[in-house]
Amino acid sequence: MTNTVPEKSGFWSRPTLWKLLLLIVAYLVFYLAAGQVISRVFADQIDTDNVVSSASSIIFGVMLPIAIGAVALLIFTVKVGWLSSIFGPQPVRGRGWMWIGPIIVVAAIAAHLAGTDWSAWSAGEIVSLIALGVCVGLAEELVTRGIAVKMLRDAGHRERFVAVVSSLLFALMHTVNFIAGMELATVLATVVYTFGFGMCMYLTMRVTGTIWAAIVLHGLTDPTTILSTGGLDTSVTTGASGATTIATLLTVVLVAFGVVAIFFIRGRVGEEQPARVSA
Rank of each mutant, 00 (worst) to 15 (best):
M1S: 13
F11E: 02
R14C: 00
T16N: 01
T16Q: 00
I24P: 01
Y27N: 00
F30E: 00
Y31M: 14
Y31I: 07
L32P: 06
L32H: 01
A33F: 10
G35W: 08
S39I: 04
V41Y: 05
A43W: 10
D44R: 10
I46Y: 10
I46S: 02
D47T: 00
D47Y: 07
D49P: 02
D49F: 08
F60W: 15
G61S: 07
V62C: 07
V62Q: 09
L64W: 05
L64K: 09
I66F: 05
I66V: 10
I66C: 03
T77R: 05
T77G: 02
T77A: 00
K79H: 05
G81W: 04
G88T: 03
V92G: 00
V92Q: 03
R93C: 02
G94Y: 02
R95F: 12
M98I: 05
I100W: 01
G101C: 05
I103G: 03
I104K: 02
A107H: 11
A107C: 06
L113M: 12
L113G: 03
G115H: 05
D117Q: 13
S119Q: 14
W121N: 04
V127P: 04
A131Y: 08
V136H: 03
L138N: 05
A139W: 02
E141P: 02
G146P: 10
G146C: 08
L152A: 04
R153Q: 00
A155E: 10
H157T: 09
R158C: 00
F161I: 05
V164G: 07
V165C: 01
V165I: 15
T175I: 14
N177V: 14
F178L: 14
F178Y: 14
F178N: 09
G181W: 15
M182K: 11
T186V: 15
L188K: 01
V191E: 13
V191H: 12
V192I: 14
Y193Q: 11
T194R: 09
F197K: 06
G198F: 13
R206E: 11
V207L: 04
V207Q: 01
T208P: 09
G209H: 05
T210M: 07
W212M: 13
L217N: 02
G219S: 10
G219Q: 09
T221N: 14
D222I: 00
D222S: 12
D222K: 04
I226V: 13
I226M: 15
L227S: 09
T229A: 06
G230A: 07
G230Q: 06
S235P: 08
T237D: 07
T238Q: 15
G239W: 12
S241T: 15
I246W: 07
L249C: 13
L250W: 15
V252G: 13
F257L: 08
F257E: 10
G258T: 15
F263D: 11
R266I: 04
G267S: 13
E272R: 11
A275V: 11
